[in-house]
């Protein structure tokens, strides 16, 4: 009897959990849709910016900017690690953090001390647990990162870089490749990659359009000096939007798995319960039959 009641209780508990995980899955799906639209909306800006940089570097004949060269002989660098504020998203945070820690350790072997700018409560508590240092902890960025929130971080890092306090800036985040695939990635934010510029150059000349004779105001070189920091800011912003999309997908997948597991468990528990009930009925019948037999 006791066994049966326990089984019923457990089944009820699992049903409740399934209800919760299913709701969370639905919420994550809705959030993913929103985050995805937002991520798509950032594309035109960055594409246009890349186009302008390509046009300008042609006009300025060769690009040379402090953001493109690392100062020599600096033993420090910086890294932004983007994790989530909330849990229940499967391997999302641990994947990013593992990749980041590997990178940090490798950098340490080559003699680079890395300052960690940690975004997200999950990453902060993990690094606390490991006893690693963080120079900055950012928790105010939520599902919908705003450009105004990212800008100060980018400006601060660029300032440090230009002053020669750090040799490079990397970003560790979950890159969104497709709905079915996300990958933890370490992206080099600074120094700005030169080959990317070349790619952009090629892309614009490859189109075979006649070169536009622009009227520049101010001089191309000065314009470029403004454009490159804007590129860096946008790149960092895109990392954040990518990361939020990936986070929602991870949560969606994790909650789907949890719902499925709960369903399986309910089936097993129901089976166990039925068997227990059957056993009990048989026992009772045996008792009655035994009793009747004893009387006659």
């Amino acid at each position: 009897m006791a066994n049966r009641r326990v089984l019923i209780k457990r089944r009820k508990a699992v049903r409740n959990i399934r209800k919760i995980t299913r709701t969370m899955q639905l919420i994550a799906t809705a959030r993913f849709q929103a985050a995805f639209t937002r991520a798509i909306a950032t594309k035109p800006y960055s594409e246009k910016l890349a186009e302008l940089v390509a046009d300008l570097s042609k006009a300025a004949e060769g690009v040379d900017h402090p953001l493109m060269h690392a100062a020599e002989g600096i033993g420090r660098s910086a890294m932004v690690i983007i994790t989530s504020n909330r849990g229940l998203c499967g391997g999302y945070n641990s994947n990013v953090l593992r990749t980041a820690v590997e990178h940090l350790d490798r950098a340490k072997e080559t003699g680079l001390d890395t300052e960690v700018h940690m975004v997200g409560k999950k990453g902060i508590s993990y690094f606390k647990f490991l006893g690693r240092e963080m120079v900055e902890r950012i928790t105010h960025i939520d599902d919908a990162p705003k450009f105004e929130q990212i800008e100060p971080i980018a400006n601060y890092l660029m300032g440090q870089f230009v002053r020669g306090e750090i040799a490079s800036v990397h970003v560790a985040y979950m890159k969104f490749i497709s709905t079915g695939r996300q990958q933890p990635e370490i992206m080099q934010l600074l120094p700005l990659a030169q080959d990317e510029q070349a790619d952009a150059d090629e892309a614009s000349t490859g189109g075979g359009e006649a070169e536009t004779q622009y009227e520049f105001s101010p001089e191309p070189k000065q314009l470029l000096e403004e454009l490159l920091p804007a590129t860096v800011r946008t790149q960092l912003f895109q990392c954040f939007t990518d990361a939020t999309v990936s986070e929602q997908i991870a949560r969606m997948v994790a909650m789907k798995a949890a719902t499925d597991a709960a369903e399986d468990m309910i089936t097993t528990l129901t089976r166990q319960y039925n068997r227990a009930r059957q056993t009990q009925i048989t026992m009772e019948l045996l008792d009655i039959v035994g009793g009747a037999n004893a009387l006659t």
Binding site: Y214, E215, S217
Partner: peptide, 8 residues
């Protein structure tokens, strides 16, 4: 019909 321009 403004001439091509790139401006800060």
């Amino acid at each position: 019909n403004r001439a091509p321009l790139l401006c800060k």
